[in-house]
Design a protein around this nucleic acid. Sequence first.
DNA 1: TTAGGGTAAGTTTTT
DNA 2: CTTACCCTAA
Length: 776
Amino acid sequence: MDLKKIYQKLRERKTKKSNRPSTPSSDLESSIFPDNDHAESRIKPEEVSEDYRGILEKIKLRNSILYESIKELNEYQQKAIFTNNKKTLVSAMVGSGKTTVLVHKVLYLHFIKNIPLNKMAVLTFTNKAANEIKERIMTFYMQSNDSCAPDFSLFGTFHSVARNILANNHHLTKLGYTSNFTIMDENEKKEFYLRIADELYLNIKYRNKIDKRIERYIDNLSRAENKRVLYGNMKNEDDLKKLVEIGYERKKQNNVMDFDDLINNANLVLSYPENSFHPKWIVVDEFQDCNLMQIEMIMNMANDSTLIFAVGDPNQLIYTWRGSDLSIFYDFKLNECKEHHLPINYRSTSNILDVAKFLISYDTKELHGTRELGAPVSLINHYDSNQEARYLANSIKILNKEGVPFREIAILFRTKKQSQIFETVFEREGIPFEVTTRQTLQNIPSLHWLTQLLKACLNKQDLNSIYDAICNENYGIIEPSNVLLKKYKASVDKSDVRTELEKLIEWLSTNTNSGNDFLNFTTKMLQLEDWLENKTYAEIPNIFNYFELSTNLRPTSINYSKDVELVKKFLEEVSIYVQLNYDTDIKSSFLAAISEMSLGGHQIIGKTIDPNSEKVKLLTMHSAKGLEFRYVFISGANNGLIPLRYANMTAEQIEEEKRLFFVAMTRAKDYLEISYHTEPEGWNSYPEPSIYLDEIPKDLLKSKQVEKFIEEDIKSDNKTIDKVGQWYMGQFVKHPKYGTGTISKISKTNIVCDFEKFGEKSFAINFLPILPVEIV
DNA sequence: TTAGGGTAAGTTTTT
DNA sequence: CTTACCCTAA
């Protein structure tokens, strides 16, 4: 159930509150705390505080619904919820119900300890996690008698909460920003820097790698000057340093922030001595993933009377490349912190846990299973990934016939590339599947354009959004060109104090052939803020008509109906966000909603992955984190792939790959199968099983070698052959442009010719522009 | 300006 | 191993 539906139900109930039945409906009850079906446990925490029973009794009197829910939890979970320590770290083992504990902690603090929800900051890393927490709390609100909608203003991702802190902080101007700043995502950031480089004729090498270079530059600020700037084959420094410095100033001029700026700037305003923003409680999810900036944000939000409750699992730390580090986790733990454990895993069979245990690096003794022995874990040796894909297609068909739904089956691998062969084979074999692809706003051009348009209207200094809104190749009113911005910037009068929006519109109207449509559209842009003035959330979808999107979305385009649908859904979503998170006025609430979309909220609209769809899931190990499946197949556990081999690997990175393998294994509920290949295709993978498999005792794994399929190999399309049709190796041929040459390579789909003057050229076999040459 | 030699980098992707 | 692209030599 999504937030919108819950909210609608909540509203419905509000209106007919008087004759509402006192018992909650059963469908709600079962959906509220899904992790709790195996609550009873033989394992007990060593010490149980004296007033422990008392607390439960107290809850029973205060809120019987919460009591019913909490009494189902195990004692470790209850202890973590009842703790009132200033700093608490809950080390949660994999599959031990940490989100359940987190949600109950919030409910306990609110309903029993009377902490208002808006005095609690609940910080997560993903929108998905934030939404799940909000949904569960909403559902609880619906069950209990509370009639008002909960205030989630400090619930959200670090970035989203940071944005809201900044937008509402009086000291923001000290940083050179105003409260209507907009957010640029990673792609927009790259464009932002490249445009500066273009405009100022900066010498920038490896332009396509500019994002990586800037990141590396900032990470290496402590290193020697030229070490930070050089990349690849560069011998001399380029203007990277200058670019970063100008970028820093330009972001302020344009009133835009990138993702990192949100956290960094929030830290700056929070650490001002006059800052008075301090939540009563700070609750952190996936604490092990925090980097230093995020820890700093937690600490800056806290004051002497703030209590911190963090939940995390060091064994699932797989994002150190985003700046998190085990030392952060342990430093926090050592510093006057009460530690709790959640050692009981409800997810996997004992066989699976027994194997996974050998890969655990921290708190080894603390993982306890609750389930039956189950099927043994298999280690299977395939010839290569193609053979494996055929084998799995077969196995999955059999499983499905036996009644296992496709959605309960997942195939996990280390790199995205590995999914291709499964897609090809499953497609051919008619097995329904879905691949998790990274969704960015750029993947949905109409929504990307719309966000840029709305950003441009609300932040009239955001030159990049303004330009992209007006000069978009699909939906813009003016044809984009890579010199327009440069020319505009060069000719603009520095003493002109008007906004960039006004200036660029005027400039474009005189320097391009713009017609009435342009005038009409840009006037609408300038006036959107005024239009919004006296509107309510319910009128936000009217923006569709305001901008005449039925014509501006290009009705002749093949994407038109889809675009209209997406845009309407987007505006609807914005409307709901404004309704749920209304703060001071419609304008700032609207901007908050648009910012939320920049922070990945669009995934709600554009998402193609439905966890409940009847499809086999093909996932990278990273994207499988947090998910679970009855049947899990880990593909390609070869050395070099797990751990993935690349230059200068550190011991820490080898450890992280191990944790990743652990995460992959523990996704399985009932059945786990691990494979490696005799002849792996990647340049970096060796024909031997992963080193991590050596750490697992042989008798815990059921080893098997799969016979090679003798059917025609699917990759034979690319294999070289000697002859096809009239063509043979070494044959003399003639090409109208390249002249004469000889055939140097033949495959089922292509012929490669080596021309005397032009070297090797490849041609598709169905469209050969060459002729045979008769040798006399 | 162009051709060809030389060499680092390559993965994962919460926002 | 392949790719991208810097760098240098004409």
